[in-house]
Each structure stands twice: as C-alpha cells, then as structure tokens.
Design a protein around this nucleic acid. Structure first.
Lengths: 342, 342
DNA sequence: TTGAAAGCGCTAACAT
DNA sequence: ATGTTAGCGCTTTCAA
C-alpha cells in the first residue's frame, strides 16, 4: 500500500511551529483578535497553515461542536427531473453557507424514507429536507423533536411541519378555468396519490373551477391514484376507450403526462385534435416533446432555494416566520395542446 | 426552545443497565461471541438497546475508526438526467453496503470541482466518485494519494486513475457506419469538449467509420466544442444555413441533441426528411420527444452501480482488477430520425 | 467474561 | 497573550 498522505492535524502543526493547538485553533477560526493573540503569532500560524496545507478534520469538529455543517435530504427519486432540480436548488444554496448535503433516495417507499431519517439523524445532520413519499407523517413529527426539518412538495397542513410547496389549488383552478374558457366541459383528471396535500388541493381547484362555471362534476372523470408513468398510460388508455371520451384531460404530474402521451400516440390519436391536455408540472424538456404541453409550471429550483434558506435560519435559531408554510405561485404555460372548441 | 430529544449514547445505556460501555459496544457490534460475553448479558444489552432505541453516533464512530462510511460525489450538474441517473445507480448500490453519499455539484466548473474534493476530503469520506468537468486532472491524481477514487464518464487513460465509462469509440463507429449504410456521405458531427476522452474517442470512431467506407473527411463538418444545449442549437443553426447542408448529423450528448432539435424545428425543417440525426446519449424521455431519435444508448445507471462496487472493493483493500478502466458497451437504438437515401 | 482507560482531532472553559 | 485540560461518543488495547 502506498503511503496514505492523510491530512495534517492541529497537533502536527503545533509540533512544527511550537505553538499550542488551542492558539492555532483560535487563529484559524478567526478568533485571534478576540483572544488578543499578537499579530506576529497570527501571521506565523496562518502562514504555517497555508504552507502545510492544513484543513480541519470536519468529523472531529462535528463531534466536538455537535453540529456537522451537513444537511440530510430524502427524496423519492433522484432521477426524476422534478426532484433533481430541487436538489440542485438546495445544493447551490447550501454550498454558499458551507454546508454539505447527504443525499438519500427513498425509492418512493415509506419504509426507506423512515430508514433514511434514522441514518441521517445518526449522522448528526444539522437539518433535514424531506420530500415525503407517503400520507403518513408520524416519523416526520418524531424527527422534528430533535432536528430542524423542512418538507417540500407534499405537506401536512394540520401538523406543525414547516413546508415549501406550490399553490396547487390556484394552479389547478387556473388550468381548468382555461379549459372551460376554450369550450371544454367534459374534463378528466388523472390524479396522483389521494390524501396528499398537493393532490387534494389540485382536486379542490379542479372542482371549484367546474362549480364556478356551473358544470356538473362527473366523478368518473377523476381517475388515477399515483404519480408515475404507468398511471398516466393506463388511465389514458381507459379514457380513450370510453364511448364518449372526455374532450380534455388534466394530468397531475410530469410522469403522468408522459404516460398519457404514450397512450395517446399508441392509439393514433392526436393532440389537441382528438383530446386536449394540460399537465401539472412542466417538464424541463417540454419544448422538445412531440406535443409541447400546456402546463402549470412550478418554480422547482426556487423551492429548493427557499427551503435551504428556511432551514439555515432555523439552525441559526432565527424564528421570524409567522407562517408555517410557503406556497409558491404557479405559472400557466400556454402551448399547443388545448383545442379551442368555440 | 423545546427539549431536543437527542440520541441516547452508549454511556447513557451503560448507566441504565449497569454494564460498561465497552461491553455494550462489543455486543452491539456483533462481537459478543468473539469476546465470549455471556448469552444473558448479550440479551440484556440487546433488549435495552432496542427498548431505548439506541443507535450509534456515526460521527464519533467515524472519528475513532477514521472512516466515515461515507462516499463523496462530485458531478457537473445534478439536474441533467445523465448525471442524476448515475447518482441513482450509485446511491442504490452504496445504500446496500451501509454507505451514505455526500453530494456536490460542480456546476461544470473546474474550480468548484477542486473545492469539492477538498471539502469531501476534510469530511473524511472513505471514497470519491467524480465525473470530472475538465481536461485537467492534477487535482484528481493528487487526491488519489489519500483517498480511493473512481472517475466516471470522462477519463484519463494515461494516468493511474481507475475509471468507468462507455466504449465511446465503438458507439460512434457504429452510429456513423449506420448512417453510411443508409446512403449518407455528408455527415456533420457536433462534438463536446475537445481533449476529453469520450469526445475524442467518439471523433476517432467517426473518422474511422468514414475512412473505412473511403469517404473523405470534411473537417468543417466537425463543429461544436461543448456538451450543452446552446452548442447544439447554435451549430445546427449554422449547419442549416450552409449552401449544401449535410444530410445527417451526429450529436455528442443528450443536451446537444435537444439544442439541435430546437434549431431544426425553428427553421421549419423536419427530421428525417430534411436532415437525419443520431444522438450519442439516449435521452430518458426520448420516446416522447417530437422526433424519437436514433441514439447510442449508454448504460448509465450501470456505470453508477459498477463504480460503487469498484470503490467498495478498493476500500476493503481488494485489488483484483487488472484493468485500469471499465468500458461498457453501448447499444444502438433505432428509431425514426434517419432517412434512407438509397 | 467484563471493565478501565486511552485516544481519534477538535473547541472552549479554565488557568496562568 | 498563550497554554493546559476536559470532553464530544465511540472502539479497542490492556488489565483483571
């Protein structure tokens, strides 16, 4: 084995230059003046540190200080652009403050999410960012007792869990309102996981928009129950085989939309001639899809940025925030996937 | 502030049940039998640990053992599906072995990559996975002196840096060969960063395929110089304005391809009627793009899996591998973006 | 079969 | 103005 040139320690440095470790520690942590350490000494120490390329062992510092300058993240699927964009927003923000992120993928499974939280807690992360997978939140409330936590996307309004999400109600309302304004009255929606706040809020927006226009709600038009590609595919297949298929559909995630596109294409239907579609969640590659979809765009990277700032404030003990959650406005993107029936 | 229910420590547990911390540590680390600790004692300890929900402080363990069970990752852009898929492959594999990942995004900047390595080193990661951004590798060779390192995608064959990548030469050769077999002789390629191994290997494959068919290489057909969307867009724009545009183009990344698609669409050209295209890097959403592209697919998640296994072996001290690098075969995906000119 | 004690590298309270 | 020392929570050598 070759010589492992492991990092130089404070003690090593002390031995070299004849000052005590604590003096060196103080100077290197910018407390030289506070402790009235002479300018000369400070210079000697700083020069030596630079010369020998000293950098502190963050594990040791973490143990001593009981904080790791580390943030734990648990997300359902890092390969989904929605989540990877959130992570980028988080990483960029945390980097600025000298925090590193420990990333865990929960594979959309609640058991793994729970396991992740335990691991991250044992790693002494200073804060946690979770995009929860399920409808259950006991483990989250539990972890909050010991670690600052922000949840993104799915949230639990009735619980004291601070969150960052989109204004799902308004986004859905706008979309359905738009469809109605184009003459659609038979509008299906393929929903995600029932019982999760974003989904239920979108459903509420969908209903309210129809009610406002005095359109009877056909309960069989509300289908689905998962955010994945298969749900979009299967439900669209079924919708298309109806005697009178809806004239429009509203899909509740980027993945559902992709599944829907696949089904529509397979059945040789075209958008928007045969069926109109609006997607909640803009797809980052939307401009390049065979049918650019009208979408309700969420400010995904911003959700990451804001969550990072919130949790850093919490870590610092700042508690300025009245509100428990932040709901970011969505943006309606008009493309060519809705037919004007008027 | 509410009472921080911080984790219970070994000492806490010792106080509760009257055994020494070392005994407890041994039992909980599965060394009870080795140290011939009585079954009863073992049971008492295990039960107590479970009852009080003890889990070890991994920072402390890391400091003591000088290993953190942590792997550092530096990648150019987590929101790019290519990289996020690699990360998923890595995460899934590391999770199985009890390793967590510390993720750093280098934003495609060499300075940030260097900074990342320093941070990760100070965090005592047991291993490093890097998707390098640049052509320079000094910092990588340097870090290798102290930490096991695997690089993915771009590699440096002349240096002792173990890597996992695709067989870029063969993939490119196959693609160009296919184009020629369809009657194309004027084939442009939009390359990525010159001087990086994957790019140069693809160029070599491109040239060799043309040479084999005795087609003169038109050097002005080799354009580009970056892997991003803008490069694809700009270069395609330029290609299309030529007096005699090439009949086919070969793009060197998923992002370049997207840029090319945008340019082609803007100019009201259609694929493959006006121009044929093959993309190196399949796009995960390729099936849904307005033109499903013939692609050279890389086994991305597998690259993550293999790298994880390699580095875990290195950490364990296993040195079974003769070869310095692993090149995974690519797969040619035939879709409808190439016109048959014959 | 179990306990005592050292020590990983750092910071900070307490000397001097 | 700088040094000594304790201790973060864990593992492991040495002792008994």
């Amino acid at each position: 084995m070759s010589k492992k040139s492991s990092n130089i320690t404070l003690k090593d440095l002390a031995d070299k230059i004849g000052f005590n470790v604590s003096t060196i520690s103080r100077v290197l942590n910018g407390k030289g003046d506070e402790y009235r350490i002479s300018k000369e000494t400070q210079k000697i120490i700083k020069d030596a540190a630079k010369k020998h390329n000293f950098t502190p062992n963050l594990t040791a510092r973490g143990l001593r200080l009981k904080k790791s300058h580390t943030i734990g993240i648990s997300i359902p699927d890092i390969s989904n652009p929605f989540f990877s964009t959130i992570v980028r927003g988080l990483e960029n923000e945390f980097r600025k403050s000298g925090y590193s992120i420990v990333l865990c993928d929960s594979q959309d499974k609640i058991e793994i999410e729970i396991e992740n939280l335990q691991i991250l807690k044992n790693r002494n992360v200073d804060g946690l960012i979770v995009c929860p997978v399920g409808t259950n939140s006991d483990h989250l409330v539990d972890i909050l007792k010991s670690i600052p936590l922000i949840i993104i996307d799915r949230y639990f309004p009735e619980l004291p869990l601070q969150y960052v999400s989109s204004n799902n109600y308004q986004g859905a309302y706008d979309a359905v309102n738009y469809l109605v304004s184009k003459g659609h009255r038979d509008i299906a929606c393929i929903q995600g996981i029932v019982g999760t706040s974003p989904n239920d809020e979108r459903i509420r927006g969908y209903r309210d928009a129809l009610i406002k226009h005095k359109i009877d709600i056909n309960e069989t038009n509300i289908v689905g129950g998962n955010y994945n590609i298969e749900t979009g595919y299967i439900e669209t297949k079924l919708l298309l085989t109806r005697k009178n298929p809806p004239t429009a559909m509203f899909t509740f995630s980027n993945m559902i939309s992709l599944g829907a596109l696949k089904a529509i294409k397979e059945d040789n239907k075209s958008i928007p001639e045969d069926i109109s579609i609006i997607s909640f969640d803009d797809h980052p590659y939307s401009d390049f899809l065979h049918t650019p979809l009208n979408s309700v765009r969420q400010q995904i990277a911003l959700m990451g940025n804001i969550s990072a700032k919130l949790i850093l404030d919490r870590i610092k003990g700042v508690q300025n925030y009245e509100q428990q959650g932040v709901l970011l406005p969505t943006e309606f993107i008009e493309r060519q996937s809705v037919k004007n029936l008027k």
